[in-house]
């Protein structure tokens, strides 16, 4: 079977593909622009990798990491890098991304996406690690802005400024999670327009959209609901400023039936098409 041209993400909507939908997708081959999966679920090969390689025969695949810890202060885990390299070789993904966060320090590993102070020192540190990853993989890494529930008193720049400088230094791309920005706007009072203007549009290679939950007044980035009307509105504004890019619907807990995800993707696709029309 010939592999379709799937080395770049098409500028349309895709979905985050999770275990409950593997079978349905492989049997029905629904019309999906592309899919994104979490790297760590396919490390070590075996049964999960089998499934992913079958998916890869039909769709462009983006590999999205949740465990690299680009800002962690323990050394980059070599086994993690090797496993990712191996996965890249097997899958030949259309994109590969990680989060601007940390998950390990001293002797602690915290399996989450944690914020850190945006200082010049942190920028040097993260830039070195992004370079290390890009060197190992031999390709560009996309780095995703984070949803955060607190800020550090001694941050020296905004997250947008940090990301902009990171792309300038390392040549990495930006995965712009619009829902993460919205969560930060509501929780932390981040200025959405300032964020959008602070990152270089040409470095943005992908968007993420998802739904959040709320707890005691704090929006929590749970990926457990449809995209809210406020996030759609912010997405439209982002499209006007930055332009259309491959856009992913993420849903990671209380995962709904596939048609629900596809309907969300259709909404994103429609907005991308309106935006395409404006650009042309």
């Amino acid at each position: 079977m010939g592999t379709p041209t799937t080395h770049i993400l098409p500028c349309t909507a895709g979905i985050g593909l999770r275990a409950p939908h593997y079978r349905e997708v492989l049997q029905g081959l629904p019309k999906l622009g592309w899919v994104e999966v979490h790297n760590e679920n396919f490390f070590g090969g075996g049964a999960p990798l089998h499934t992913l390689l079958k998916v890869r025969e039909h769709y462009p695949v983006s590999l999205h990491g949740v465990g690299m810890g680009l800002a962690s202060t323990t050394p980059l885990a070599n086994d993690h890098l090797i496993a990712l390299h191996r996965l890249c070789d097997a899958v030949q993904p259309a994109a590969i991304s990680e989060h601007l966060c940390w998950n390990a320090a001293a002797r602690m590993v915290i399996n989450d996406l944690l914020p850190f102070p945006y200082t010049a020192e942190a920028l040097d540190h993260v830039a070195r690690r992004v370079e290390q990853v890009q060197e190992k993989l031999g390709r560009q890494l996309l780095v995703e802005n984070l949803s955060s529930y607190l800020t550090f008193a001694h941050s020296e720049m905004t997250e947008g400024e940090f990301l902009a400088e990171l792309t300038r230094r390392t040549g990495c791309g930006i995965l712009f999670d619009v829902e993460n920005l919205y969560v930060n706007v509501r929780n932390l009072g981040v200025d959405a327009d300032a964020f959008i203007k602070s990152i270089p549009a040409e470095a943005v290679k992908e968007y993420h959209l998802a739904g959040f939950d709320e707890r005691d007044g704090c929006l929590v980035d749970t990926h457990s609901y449809p995209v809210s009307s406020e996030v759609w509105e912010l997405f439209e504004s982002v499209l006007r400023h930055i332009g259309p890019r491959p856009t992913l619907i993420e849903w990671d807990s209380d995962i709904p039936a596939l048609p629900v995800l596809m309907a969300e993707a259709a909404k994103a696709k429609q907005r991308l098409e309106v935006c395409h029309a404006c650009v042309e």
């Binding site: 202060t73 320090a105 001293a106 944690l114 102070p117 200082t119 020192e121 942190a122 550090f152």
Partner: peptide
């Protein structure tokens, strides 16, 4: 790194 101390406190 000062960052390391920050992350350790937060962690």
């Amino acid at each position: 790194l000062a960052l390391s101390d920050d992350l350790t406190v937060f962690g």
